[in-house]
């Protein structure tokens, strides 16, 4: 059912509305969205592609000129940070997305209850999502501060080693990840929770009678039923994590050295230095990379989904 394109079963039956076929009406319904999105994407895309082949300095616009593919050559062969930032982005997504999903699922299971006051708990848990990353990042940075910060104070209080957190190349990436995971796990939780509430009480009751519990319940009953929602959450988190920016900008701005210089941060620092051509070239490469990642990710998910459904029906 979740495989797009299979929806609708009333065939080519004509509707009274303008006597259009279902297919046409569907297109009409999507049209405004497409118009807005494409309308706002044409110029930025065109500008980016054109600028990628120019040497254009924000601080010296009059010296701009066409340079062909040189910006790409620079990124591939001369830039120390380009490959590193791609690697870092890979590591970042490979850790933050699964951890958010697992933690989010765990929290959702905990909060999927009929206890009194659960509304308040569910409200409270989403607070991190509502704090603008600018303020949140700064507050966490103050807590990370290695000598007088709260976290090391607490660590020492319980007799553990201090950490250098965001100030050392070895721990900086992990520190920023903690903030990101902390902020976005509740987002995953809330969406999964909404999915879980769609599971009909009869199914839950049947599972209870069959004594299906814990992980088995999760794996055999819950996950297959909320799979479309899980897919969407994974995808949206993935797209946002690949382009992660605000929180890194505020906490480390890519440092120490280049240890937290993820793709968007690197693009921004190139922009900050005024190198519009290199920035645009990077942007073009990034859009291509994200497309590849997301499409292959969708393929895997669809295959997974079919397998899951077969298992359920078996």
């Amino acid at each position: 059912m979740a495989v797009p394109g299979l929806a609708g079963s009333s065939g080519g039956r004509r509707q009274p509305f303008l006597h259009l076929s279902e297919n046409r009406i569907a297109y009409l319904l999507v049209l405004p969205t497409l118009l807005i999105l494409i309308g706002l994407a044409v110029y930025p895309l065109g500008w980016t592609v054109a600028t990628a082949f120019r040497s254009d300095n924000l601080f010296n616009p009059l010296a701009a000129r066409w340079v062909g593919p040189r910006n790409f050559e620079f990124l591939f062969f001369n830039d120390d940070t380009f490959w590193k930032t791609l690697r870092l982005a890979g590591i970042w997504c490979a850790i933050t997305v699964p951890v958010q999903l697992i933690l989010g699922l765990f929290l959702a299971m905990l909060l999927d209850t009929t206890m009194r006051g659960i509304g308040i708990l569910r409200t409270l848990i989403v607070i991190p999502v509502f704090i603008t990353p600018v303020a949140l990042g700064l507050s966490w940075r103050a807590m990370f501060e290695p000598i007088g910060g709260l976290l090391n104070y607490l660590l020492q209080g319980v007799g553990l080693e201090k950490s250098l957190w965001h100030t050392h190349p070895d721990t900086a990436l992990l520190s920023v990840m903690i903030v990101d995971i902390w902020q976005w796990t509740p987002f995953v939780t809330l969406i999964l929770l909404a999915g879980m509430q769609g599971i009909s009480p009869e199914v839950v009751e049947a599972a209870r009678l069959d004594r299906v519990r814990g992980l088995t319940y999760l794996r055999r009953i819950v996950l297959p039923l909320i799979w479309p929602v899980v897919t969407v959450v994974l995808l949206l988190r993935l797209v946002d994590e690949i382009r992660i920016f605000d929180v890194i900008l505020i906490i480390t701005r890519g440092g120490p050295g280049s240890s937290t210089l993820l793709a968007s941060m690197n693009i921004y620092s190139i922009f900050h230095a005024g190198r519009l051509g290199v920035m645009a070239a990077y942007g073009v490469l990034m859009v291509i990379a994200i497309n590849i990642v997301v499409i292959s990710f969708l393929r895997v998910l669809h295959r997974q989904e079919k397998a899951t459904r077969q298992k359920v029906s078996a």
């Binding site: 300095n57 601080f59 010296n60 940070t81 280049s258 620092s269 900050h272 230095a273 005024g274």
Partner: peptide, 13 residues
């Protein structure tokens, strides 16, 4: 010079 920020930023990296 006009591209002074580019010079300084790149140096700092």
């Amino acid at each position: 010079v006009p591209p002074t920020f580019t010079l300084a930023d790149t140096l700092g990296n």
